[in-house]
Design a protein around this nucleic acid. Sequence first.
DNA 1: TCAAAAGTGTTGCGCATACACCCATGG
DNA 2: CCATGGGTGTATGCGCAACACTTTTGA
Lengths: 232, 232
Amino acid sequence: MTQYQDQTHLLVAVDCIIFGFDNEELKLLLIKRDFEPERDKWSLMGGFLRPQETADEAAKRVLHRLTGLQDVYLDQVHTFSAPGRDPVERTVSIAYYALINIEDHNEELSEQHGAKWFSLKEAPKLIFDHEQMVTAAIQKLRYKTSVQPIGFELLPEKFTMRQLQKLYEAILDEELDKRNFVKKINQLDILTKLDEKDMTSSKKGSYLFQFDQSKYEKQASKGFSLKLANQL
Amino acid sequence: MTQYQDQTHLLVAVDCIIFGFDNEELKLLLIKRDFEPERDKWSLMGGFLRPQETADEAAKRVLHRLTGLQDVYLDQVHTFSAPGRDPVERTVSIAYYALINIEDHNEELSEQHGAKWFSLKEAPKLIFDHEQMVTAAIQKLRYKTSVQPIGFELLPEKFTMRQLQKLYEAILDEELDKRNFVKKINQLDILTKLDEKDMTSSKKGSYLFQFDQSKYEKQASKGFSLKLANQL
DNA sequence: TCAAAAGTGTTGCGCATACACCCATGG
DNA sequence: CCATGGGTGTATGCGCAACACTTTTGA
């Protein structure tokens, strides 16, 4: 049986672009590298692919190690393979982005890794090609958001319309009209309006909503015909 | 300096989904595997990543080997990494799709590889996860086509509106209205109408058009605001 | 003269956008 | 009672989709 013995074997890694949302802007969870080269520089959380796992599983593992979270929304973005991208040794890296609720993650764990949230616009320089990865991830997130309603992973279970709107504004980086936004979301018919109100943001209080998986699936099967963003 | 010595090294490959167009439907260039396992089964053209090349370069190389073509339109689709996907040895594969003019490729070369064009709908079973790759490639191609005018790579240098329409219909797998189509393409303003006519398709003859790179760039910088497909 | 493909404009409707006022309540 | 954010409806215009007839000419 033919073997592939003469071929070069390479390191394969995953790197995770971890998005969070603080009700104002999109955030990125970055870690401070604690080994050479580039010690103390900021970087994405990553890890090498192990013999018996898929890249998706590796990304999940890496994410769990940093945040303590399971079942995180993950999406493969792009694979980076320039020979010199990691100066230590050639490594092909598969970039993933993750959407997590910023409140949920285990702070102890992430502190152990020297992790910190940065707003997208104030993120520090990153090592290697990690900034390219972030750029590609945002683009993909934006695209996904504009064709299908994702992003609820970034919010608490119960949220107000206002929060959701702020989230979309942060992802798309444009302001949206309050009334039109509510109309669109309601047309999507994937949320349940609760009887509860959130009283922290105003005197009147604002209704809380909840993502409804079964509604979502019903609508998804019809195809989301609704345009959430002005342009892709 | 920390090294990554304890980590598993893997084979990394690229696989190419090669699209062509015969004025009627989308075609796929497949090769017959001439080694075990799965000898004589149909497969995508692929190759292993070499020490000093990026994945993009590897895809170009593989494509050149099969078709004799240089400077082919290539787009990375997705990376496949299931541990058992290649039974010989674990291989992570980065899938690319390529758009080529079906008339252009070197037939000798492709015959040497036992390559053959198949219409998308009549393609044979493929080895490993290659069918998944094809599916993912079509989706990405469809998406790209609907947000920016690509696909001219699939046509001869001079082509008729009718050919272009057929191409879009093949990619999007839906019928388009002739008059609306012409309007949309004209609005894009990226083609030059020639004084020549193609006389092979009808008695009247139909005008030939040519893709105009400089017009394209001018329009691209404004962003293509035009919707070519009904839905993404 | 007829068959076959090419070329061309108009209308109506649906959807997205733009826009402003009242409500409820805590302080 | 007032300040703050929450919640809601309508009118307009544009862009997309639907639609049919005339032209050309080779056979």
